[in-house]
Simulated assay, not measured.
Amino acid sequence: MDSEVSNGSDLRNEYITNLLVLDFLQSFSDCKFHQELRTLGQELPVRTYLEGEREDELQTDGNRASLFMGRIEADSESQEEVIQNIARHLAQVGDEMDRSIQPELVNELVARFMNAGLSEEDRSNCLDTTLKAAMQTYPKDMENEKTMLIMTMLLAKKVANHTPSLLHDVFRATVNFINQNLFTYVRDLVRNEMD
């Protein structure tokens, strides 16, 4: 596979996941990390990537390529809106699930994230371990991938709410975890909403 194609796909995945996690976290008004979230939103290349995508992806037929493989989408703004709507919906479902996450799991995850010596992979593994433990306490009345996606983003919210200074680290670990483990599900959610 051509490395440029691979990198482009990775950028698309990261763009989609950045926007999803950012909008999910912004859906909660009762959080203690609003200032950190505002700063993070300004630092992320979310909209910059879209603008670059519009310029770089002009096809031979004059159409612009979509962020979603194999489809032509003229309006990237509608893609952002779809992702934002998905994030808001997942946050609403997450409100009901929030109470099922045991505080001691969050405290352990916060303690691990406070270790400055952890690599991104280590942080992702910590998130994975905590997610598995949290999944044990939640009823199985929802598809597994959806539950994992919501619980992963809820754990990020809870860590950032506990210690707002960890928002950047937990955000990055969450995006990486989703891209490695749940991105096919996320991409399918977006595709289904756009159809």
Rank of each mutant, 00 (worst) to 15 (best):
H34A: 08
H34P: 03
H34K: 07
H34M: 08
Q35P: 06
Q35S: 08
Q35N: 08
Q35Y: 07
E36A: 06
E36C: 03
E36D: 08
L37E: 03
L37D: 04
L37A: 01
L37T: 02
L37C: 02
R38I: 08
R38G: 04
R38F: 05
T39R: 08
L40Y: 00
L40A: 02
L40K: 01
L40T: 01
Q42P: 02
Q42S: 06
Q42G: 07
Q42D: 08
Q42E: 10
L44V: 01
P45F: 02
P45S: 01
V46W: 00
R47G: 10
R47M: 09
T48Y: 05
T48G: 03
T48P: 00
Y49F: 07
Y49D: 01
Y49Q: 05
L50R: 11
L50F: 04
L50C: 04
L50H: 02
L50D: 05
G52C: 13
G52Y: 12
E53P: 00
E53H: 12
R54M: 01
R54E: 15
E55I: 14
E55T: 12
D56N: 15
D56C: 13
D56M: 15
D56S: 15
E57H: 14
E57D: 12
E57T: 13
L58N: 11
Q59L: 15
Q59G: 04
Q59F: 03
T60D: 07
T60P: 11
T60N: 05
D61N: 14
D61P: 03
D61F: 04
G62I: 06
N63Q: 15
N63C: 14
N63F: 05
N63S: 15
R64L: 14
R64Y: 06
R64I: 14
A65D: 00
A65Y: 08
A65L: 14
S66A: 14
S66M: 10
S66R: 01
S66Q: 02
L67E: 01
L67P: 04
L67C: 05
F68C: 06
F68E: 07
F68H: 07
M69R: 12
M69H: 09
M69S: 10
M69L: 11
M69Q: 13
G70A: 11
G70E: 02
R71S: 11
R71G: 04
I72E: 07
I72G: 06
E73N: 11
E73A: 09
A74E: 14
A74W: 13
A74V: 11
A74C: 07
A74Y: 13
D75I: 06
D75M: 05
S76M: 09
S76I: 07
E77K: 09
E77M: 00
E77T: 08
E77F: 10
